[in-house]
Amino acid sequence: MRTAFINQLCTLADTDEHIWLICGDLGYSVLEAFADRFPSRYLNAGVAEQNMTGVAAGLALVGKTVFTYSIANFPIMRCLEQIRNDVCYHNLNVKIVSVGGGLAYGSHGYTHHAVEDLAIMNALPNLIVAAPADPIEARAITTILASHQGPAYLRLGKAGEPVLHAAGTKVELGRAIQVADGSDVTIISIGGMLGTVLKASDELRLQGIHPRILSMPFLTPLDTAAILDAAEETGAILTVEEHGPGGIGTAVAETLAIHGHALAFHPLRLAKSPIKVSGTQEELRSAQGLSVEGIVQAAELLCRRPHSAVIR
């Protein structure tokens, strides 16, 4: 995903001389592509995220479109107030990019687990919050954010994620992508869980359960219409995310409640408690049910139970 991002950013910067890229001393073997081609619009701000974000705001105030780049929580948490006050309040063209969202840096330990980022970013004003599922979404969303007037947060995976969408798949700001249609349950995922969801979908179909699959890369703006259609047309919703409370599960539940839908619903997500053991991304996901089996099991339960029941 990060490769798709940087390649697309280089393509865009070729024709848009306002695009800048600033990193917080991270991006080895990724950002060189941009740094070498556009040295006057590239900057390593050092291990100093507050200043990096303030500098980005200053550049945006003089007409630049600035992408800030770091890994996991680094580009958002230390500098949260700069994002809130300098970037979001002034509605500036600063796009914050985090590589290694979720548990991508699983074995690195809790400091490197970006599992609250969506909730924190989603609380801020004027900010687009996006987490693509595959390189096709990553490329398209990079383009959308570069031309959007205002700030954004882009949560990327790392490298080597498979392409999941067909070439030419339409990605639009604030719109979910329907990957498969079905009538028994809707599975909504944000970010890198889509691959696992699609495998689970295959299993479910073998069992005669036909899920609708929505990839929802935008937490803000949220595709409320797709959620309400899913509620009415499939009667049950399972959300799947590599993130704790406050992400897509929370957003979907709130949407359903506001619109008076009492249906079978379950947010499959990480617990709020920190993960204290080392593990691969796959292992740490699976330990909390973010696996093919976990998704299949949760979907089965939703399809079986009366719509007003509560899963746990």
Partner: peptide, 15 residues
């Protein structure tokens, strides 16, 4: 909130 002006000023000056 304090400590915001100089980083933003650095960005403007760099631009």
């Amino acid at each position: 909130s304090l400590g915001h002006g100089l980083p933003v000023g650095c960005g403007m000056a760099l631009g």
